[in-house]
Design a binder for these strands. Structure first.
Lengths: 204, 204
DNA sequence: TGTACATCAGTGAACGCGCGTTCACTGATGTAC
DNA sequence: TGTACATCAGTGAACGCGCGTTCACTGATGTAC
């Protein structure tokens, strides 16, 4: 038999999924509690058994979505390939993850400048955290003693390009993927090569 | 005396300005015709004398905002400084324009992934156009015979960084500006140096 | 310059609709003895 | 194992509100003669 808390968890899950789906066209701002309830198959007031408000639901989705993002980074890291392969591998993993988890990546991209101040700020805070983590990863690469401030600048640039690329992947047809892959690889290469040369130039 | 059409133009202007203001927190998706009318000081139904719908109003704002953006580029171009100064000058002009025209730049940044499909698509189309223009500008720099495809890839990367930087400027306090300037300069430098070295490397 | 008519930006009442939120409730699941 | 009571996810009616849109209108501005 399914316990009461199991059932509740299942409904909660259904609410989160419904919200991810309904949000795709209109953003969280265009999502109503009643739409969600209807989609899930509960009465509007039952929503409150799970979340205090649409904003709280949004925050839960932010958490979930960034878990997705971190899982992706772990995937890149565990391959731990050579510096030469890291570009190809990173881009492949990005494309793969975005395709496999459109809903979460789309949610993040949208709500980054969405209509709810609370959710928007949460997304931005998570991206800052994410940037700092990436800069730690970069520090482990052989980039002769960069300052952490400079690593963060590079990290900020890379994360920005990653978001732009994710958006391209989300809007693209399958047949456009090779081109997007090529572009993303070229850009990542430019950034890394640029950072290396810019830095060595400055130090001489 | 103010003519009838002058008066109409003035009201239209007031609607556009009210929309830009009200949109700042909630995005276009959170904007209602009645809010705009109230802000302007007309009755809701009078709105229809100027726009068919909020979406049409949004499209007008997209046009306006990208005029702003193009004015900025013209400003960069007319200085036509050396390759060495172009980075500093570009960043200075960007910061200056974004600060002077927060409303338009914020509108573009927001509605790029906003809740209205029509407006969103219009913004994206404009950005693609803008990228192509920038790639033509880049072709005039001494970047030994790049293919236009590669210039577009670089252009796409630069525009992405420009949007990210604009968003930083919009959210920043005045005292954080020097750091943002520094970051933007470093990043633009990385991209240009990277592009040059990556390319020459590939050609050998 | 004066008159008669046309235009049209803005008015105001009215509509039906979906919204978030309140409240008292039901009945199945869980717990204490 | 059986009984009595507590918990609580989901129900259903009701509310007041702001929304976009319709319609017939007003009265100042503009135009033709």
């Amino acid at each position: 038999m399914e316990s009461r808390s199991d059932k509740k968890e299942r409904t909660r899950r259904a609410i989160l999924d419904a919200a991810l789906g309904l949000t795709e066209d209109t953003g969280l701002a265009g999502l109503s509690l009643r739409q969600v309830a209807k989609e899930v198959g509960i009465v509007p007031t039952a929503f409150y058994r799970h979340f205090d408000s649409i904003d709280q639901l949004g925050l839960a989705l932010v958490e979930e979505s960034f878990s997705s993002l971190r899982a992706m980074i772990r995937d890149v890291r565990q391959g731990s390939p050579s510096l030469g392969q890291i570009v190809d591998r990173s881009v492949d993993v990005l494309v793969e993850h975005v395709r496999a988890d459109r809903a979460h990546f789309g949610f993040i991209a949208r709500e980054q400048s969405g209509g709810s101040a609370v959710v928007r700020d949460a997304v931005r805070r998570q991206f800052e955290l994410f940037e700092r983590e990436l800069s730690l990863d970069l520090a482990r690469l052989p980039m002769d003693h960069w300052s952490s401030a400079d690593l963060q600048i590079l990290s900020n640039l890379i994360v920005g390009a990653m978001i732009t690329t994710s958006e391209s992947i989300l809007h693209a047809e399958a047949r456009d993927l090779p081109e997007i892959r090529h572009r993303a690889r070229s850009q990542l290469m430019m950034m890394i090569v640029g950072a290396l040369n810019w830095k060595s130039r400055e130090q001489t």
